[in-house]
Amino acid sequence: MAVGLPENIFITKLDAAANWARSNSLWPMPFATACCGIELMATAASRHDLARFGAEVMRFSPRQCDLLIVAGRVVMKMLPVLQRIWLQMPEPKWCISMGACACSGGVFDTYAVVQGIDRFIPVDMYVPGCPPRPEQLLQAVMDMQAKVRRTGTVMGREFAIRDMPAGPAPFDSDERYRIEDTRLVQLGGFSAAATSAGRGATQG
């Protein structure tokens, strides 16, 4: 190096330094609703020990966390709570959707279960499985760290690129077709207002 540096000083990009720090100090907020929560517990407990990978500081207050792990199915009554917790977390923040139910509704294709949280909040990492084995979650956390190191910027420009949630629109064509099936409308109880309100002002 042409310029002589004093000892204990090295040169790097600010982004890289921030990413290095952020990726090694992920504080997960376990949003554990169902079975996946038990596997999340197993990941943190004796045998699998999430602490080996530097993401064991589980904090149950969203204000202190930067990694939301949604473990388990999210139902109609719970989704507003989840959205509120996501809004309460400070930037920069990331989200892991753990298990088939959180990713897509899983086996619960019923009236009450939200068919994938990525329709309503941004998701960075999906973990398949019902429930995923602890090893899978460990791998997801490590991948998350790699992703933060690879793509992160100090000002959070990488978030601006993918603004909308990655999932299908809440009332995608299949859902709309099914709801507007004449037989269902005839039975009453469903109002047309519900379909348009879903996308709301955020229709991109």
Binding site: I38, V75, M78, V107, F108, T110, Y111, V113
Partner: peptide
């Protein structure tokens, strides 16, 4: 309560006796 109501009993009316096992599994997950 009801923050995890996912329609188990309704699903039980649509799946056969062997298929519904996968759903009752997820009832008491301990």
């Amino acid at each position: 309560i009801g923050y995890l109501h996912s329609g188990f009993e309704k699903l039980g009316e649509h799946l056969d006796f062997n298929q519904y096992v996968t759903i009752v599994d997820r009832m008491n997950y301990l």
